[in-house]
């Protein structure tokens, strides 16, 4: 047992470096993807055909294709079309697309949860469509979306593990390299799994608690 702990202690710094990259790419993807999700959520409801169709296609592909394929498409495929990005940039782009697609559904559901009377009252007092959205609908709708968005963010951190396949030096990549050098795959993967668990388990419990609290204050 103590031998295992020594092993872990020796390789923990490398894994933590990897974890830092995982967290960084997740953060960038969310920062790009969630605003994209809001735009897509509004665009799919547009009355104009062009934005609606583009948004629908973006969402269907972002949600329908495996994240791994999106990653490989961006990293290996885009260079064919003349756009060669680093693995971090490719990962951010692909995961942002994925995030935007999934969160557009989450946000859309949140906006629909706003009582219809709110939209009517906003219209009746003469607020323009944009003002109604900005001052009345979005503040209420986004509030409903917060717990599922947090939950999704946790899933995104896990999805960052797929960036192994596009040579991003994140946590799983580091673990794999250490494993292939020391042949102690089990031990190092155990530690890697532990690192994910230590973040995701409390985070998941926090989201459940948040859901309960927000549910209590519902009107």
């Amino acid at each position: 047992m103590s031998e295992l702990l020594d092993f872990w202690w020796e390789w923990l710094p490398s894994l933590l470096n990897g974890l830092a990259v995982s967290v960084a790419v997740t953060a960038v993807s969310l920062a790009l993807g969630i605003p994209l999700g809001l735009i897509l959520a509004l665009a799919v409801q547009s009355k104009k055909t062009a934005p609606r169709t583009i948004a629908l296609v973006a969402v269907e592909i972002g949600r329908g294709a495996p994240a791994l394929i999106l990653l490989q498409f961006t990293y290996f495929g885009l260079p064919n079309a003349g756009l060669a990005l680093s693995s971090f940039a490719s990962a951010s782009l692909a995961l942002a697309w994925c995030t935007g697609a999934y969160t557009s559904e989450i946000i859309r559901a949140g906006l629909e949860a706003v009582p219809h009377g709110q939209k009517e009252a906003a219209s009746a007092i003469g607020l323009s469509g944009w003002d109604a959205l900005r001052y009345v609908i979005l503040p209420q709708g986004l509030r409903v979306s917060i717990p599922p968005l947090f939950g999704f963010s946790i899933l995104m951190l896990q999805a960052s593990s797929l960036c192994f396949a596009i040579a991003l030096p994140e946590l799983v990549s580091q673990a794999y390299i250490i494993g292939s050098n020391t042949f102690r795959y089990m031990s190092i993967l155990l530690l890697a799994g532990l690192l994910y668990a230590v973040i995701c388990i409390p985070a998941t419990m926090a989201v459940s608690a948040l859901e309960r609290r927000l549910g209590q204050h519902a009107h």
Binding site: P115, G117, A121, A122, A124, I125, G126, Q140
Partner: peptide, 20 residues
Amino acid sequence: MRLRRSVGMVFQSFNLFPHL
């Protein structure tokens, strides 16, 4: 817009904005 400014409406379910 001019119509909406000339006409005020009060709803059965009040429809006040709860977050303001």
